[in-house]
């Protein structure tokens, strides 16, 4: 278990959740506006955000509701759009202590978003789940409030604020991947190759038509798969 008790980790989670909350607020506000556009009410949109906690996944959900999709179509689309969370959960399952009470394996899945996953993986050693729960409470509060306000108030947030807030989530991603790149050249190379490939995917014909969710899955499988082959991590590192 990582040093520190549950309560300090929970508090740290609440603090680290603040920038996530801000970024989520801006994104979910836009989501709320979209939901309102297809006739969803604030309760429906709020429940959706609280229950799903997924950006692209919820945009897809709105489209499905708008098109009165059937059950099979809803389930398959949800699986495809949210498949990257499957990979993230696989990865995070290896950060858990073997002694961790079993119920955490039912609570942690709810918390797996791009940002919360990123921060939870960045912890040294085993993950204390209360860190993740702290971040999740703050983030989901922002995510849900943003969605509800988006539905209720529509387009009242000024452009400059939406613009500025919209990059905060990416800033957090950089704060997660750049410091380890400084210490480990292989990680640095991995980050560079990943960014370059992602850039190519958005420029090249055919490849640029692949949806964002699929791009993440394809590139993660290819690049992380190749990296694991070229440079297998030693035991001590993989456990951390």
């Amino acid at each position: 278990m990582s040093p520190g008790g549950d309560l300090p980790w929970f508090r740290r989670g609440l603090r680290d959740g603040i920038p996530i909350c801000m970024g989520y607020f801006a994104v979910s506000f836009a989501l709320g506006i979209t939901a309102r556009g297809i006739g969803m009410n604030a309760l429906q949109a709020g429940l959706m955000s609280m229950g799903m906690v997924a950006s692209a996944g919820e945009f897809a959900a709105i489209v499905l509701i708008q098109s009165s999709a059937g059950v099979i179509e809803m389930i398959t689309t949800c699986i495809v759009v949210n498949l990257r969370y499957f990979l993230m959960s696989c990865s995070l399952s290896q950060k858990l202590s073997p002694d961790l009470p079993f119920y955490h394996r039912f609570l942690l899945p709810y918390c797996i978003t791009d940002e919360i996953f990123g921060l939870s993986s960045a912890v040294e050693g085993y993950l204390n789940p209360f860190y993740t729960y702290g971040m999740t409470i703050v983030s989901v509060a922002g995510w849900t409030t943003g969605t509800v306000l988006g539905v209720l108030m529509g387009n009242i947030m000024p452009d400059w604020a939406v613009n500025a807030l919209s990059v905060s989530l990416y800033g957090m991603f950089l704060a997660i991947i750049i410091p380890p790149s400084k210490k480990d050249r292989f990680i640095a190379g991995l980050v560079l190759i990943s960014m370059a490939s992602s850039g190519l995917f958005s420029l090249l014909p055919v490849l640029r038509d692949i949806s964002g969710g699929f791009k993440v899955i394809i590139l993660t499988l290819l690049i992380a798969g190749a990296a694991a082959f070229i440079h297998p991590v030693e035991e001590a590192k993989a456990a951390s």
């Binding site: 990257r84 791009d114 991947i177 991995l190 990943s194 993989a238």
Partner: peptide, 13 residues
């Protein structure tokens, strides 16, 4: 190793 590298690649992409 693959699962260890997943977060870096995913977040960079």
């Amino acid at each position: 190793s693959f699962l260890y590298y997943v977060p870096y690649v995913t977040l960079a992409v």
